[in-house]
Every structure is written in C-alpha cells, then in structure tokens.
C-alpha cells in the first residue's frame, strides 16, 4: 500500500482498470453475446468449443458472463443512485435548516431505520415480487437512504460551520448561494468516495440475494445466479463459478481502492 501511495498515478490506473473490465463487460457484453455464444452443449463440459466451458444446463459460460453484467452491476448502481436521490436532499435539508425541530423531524425516522438488515428486507420484498430486478434495486436503494442522509448531513454541517461559509454569510451572500455554491460542492468529493464503497457493498448484497434465490429466476444469466447454479461442480468446472466471482471481486476491489484514493487526496 505504501509503495502505491508514492506513485499515485500507477495505483489509480490499476484501480481504474479493475473497475473498467467488469464494467465494460456489463455494458458491451449484451451486444456481443449473441455473436460469440456457441449453441448449448453437455452440462459442465470444459473446452469443446466453449472457451469457459458450460454450466449446469449446458449453457456457454462466456455467453452467460456477457449477458449477466447489467443485472449484477446495474441493479447495484441504480440502487445507490436511488439512495442518493432520496438521501442527499434529506441530509442537505436537515443540515441547512435553522429550525432544530425540522432537523429532528427529518433525521429521527431515518436513524430509527438505519440498522435494518438488508437481506431481510429483500426477503420480504421477494415474497410478492419475485424475479424483478427493479424490486431489488428499490429495496437496496431504500436501505441506503438513512446512511446517505446521515453522511451528507454530517459533511454539509462540517462545511457550513467552516470559515469559508462564515465569510460568505458575513459578506451578505444569500443562503441558497452558500448552500449550493459552496456547501454542496464541498460535500461532493465526500459523497463520491462514499458512493464508491456503497456501490461495492450493494453489488455484494444484490449478488448475495441472487445467490440465495431471493431475487432473480434461477435461469437468469446474472453473475450471482450463475455462481449459485454451478456451485456443486466447483471442482469439475471451476470457470462457471470462478469467472463471475472474479469479475465481482475485481469490481469491488477497484471501487474500494478508487474511493480510498479520493479520500486520501483530499487530506
């Protein structure tokens, strides 16, 4: 780690590459999938025209990999975006209000909901809404709202009580200008770093839900579902589990490293 810190460009490039590969597969994969996917073969073959072998149903693993990205990464990204859409205005409003009761009114319910275990909510949602990626995205997004609101509120309060905001207020700048012109911008890097780790966590949560069979259908090409479906053949056909797992790990490691760097460069 210390070696990387001295050469930030190299470390950042590695982290960006780690994120870029799974992301590119998720974005471009569905376009390529039909062209490169050979017809189904026997279950759990290795080689024989299938570069990464086949899965339990004889489907080409490379083809699954190319088509499973949007649900594996997209659902998590949408969830965090939803969390920020709802949580950031809440946190900013709570931080900028002059009325303590409004702050309490906005933040107390949020804090009561903070410790709800995410997979439990997904289980409950999964009872009525099986196989819908948007249901999982909504559930995970809602679960992110309390933490996002708290983080944004704390960061905004930090900036609003600092000397710059104080000076702007003394010069008679309007409250809106202080809030959006300075405080909002000061919150951005903190929020970006947090969003990075949050997307990583959401990817794990979504993948875990799919692995458990609480989310998408068992035939979906999603990476989490693929890992679950091929797990009994881990020693016979390691690619069916290893390849999607490697993509998930690359993505989260890269994101964590990137947000680490973002936070460190601010200090």
């Amino acid at each position: 780690m210390t070696g990387l810190a001295r050469r930030p460009s190299f470390g950042t490039a590695t982290a960006a590459l780690l994120v870029a590969v799974p992301l590119a597969i998720a974005v471009l994969g569905p376009l390529l999938a039909d062209a490169v996917t050979p017809p189904d073969g026997a279950p759990y073959t290795v080689g024989d025209g299938h570069p990464l072998g086949t899965d339990r149903l004889g489907r080409d693993v490379l083809g699954l990999l190319l088509r499973g990205g949007p649900s594996a990464l997209g659902v998590a990204c949408c969830a965090v975006a939803l969390g920020y859409l709802a949580g950031a205005p809440l946190g900013l409003a709570a931080a900028s209000t002059r009325h303590r009761w409004l702050d309490e009114l906005l933040m107390r319910p949020v804090e009561i909901l903070l410790p709800i275990p995410s997979l439990l909510v997904i289980s409950v949602v999964g009872v009525g809404w099986r196989g819908h990626p948007e249901a999982i995205a909504l559930a995970v997004g809602a679960l992110n709202v309390p933490a996002v609101a708290r983080l944004v509120r704390a960061a905004a309060l930090d900036a609003a009580s600092g000397p710059v905001a104080e000076a702007m207020r003394m010069q008679g700048e309007s409250r809106a200008r202080v809030l959006f012109g300075y405080v909002g911008r000061a919150v951005l890097p903190v929020a970006a770093a947090d969003a990075g780790t949050r997307v990583g966590m959401a990817v794990f949560t979504v993948a875990a839900a799919n692995f458990l069979g609480l989310g998408l259908e068992p035939t979906s090409p999603d990476w989490g579902v693929t890992i679950a479906g091929s797990r009994e053949a881990l020693l016979v056909q390691p690619w069916a589990v290893g390849a999607p797992a490697a993509l998930l790990v690359m993505f989260t490691v890269g994101l964590n490293l990137l947000s680490d760097r973002l936070l460190r460069s601010r200090r």
Binding site: I227, A228, L234, L248, V249, N256
Partner: peptide, 12 residues
C-alpha cells in the same frame, strides 16, 4: 473484498 458466498464455496 471477496463476497461471503464465494468464500464459502472455496472453503467447501
């Protein structure tokens, strides 16, 4: 950085 379920499968 490794998801729980991958860790569990590798352990098995």
């Amino acid at each position: 950085s490794v998801p729980d379920f991958v860790l569990a499968l590798v352990a098995v």
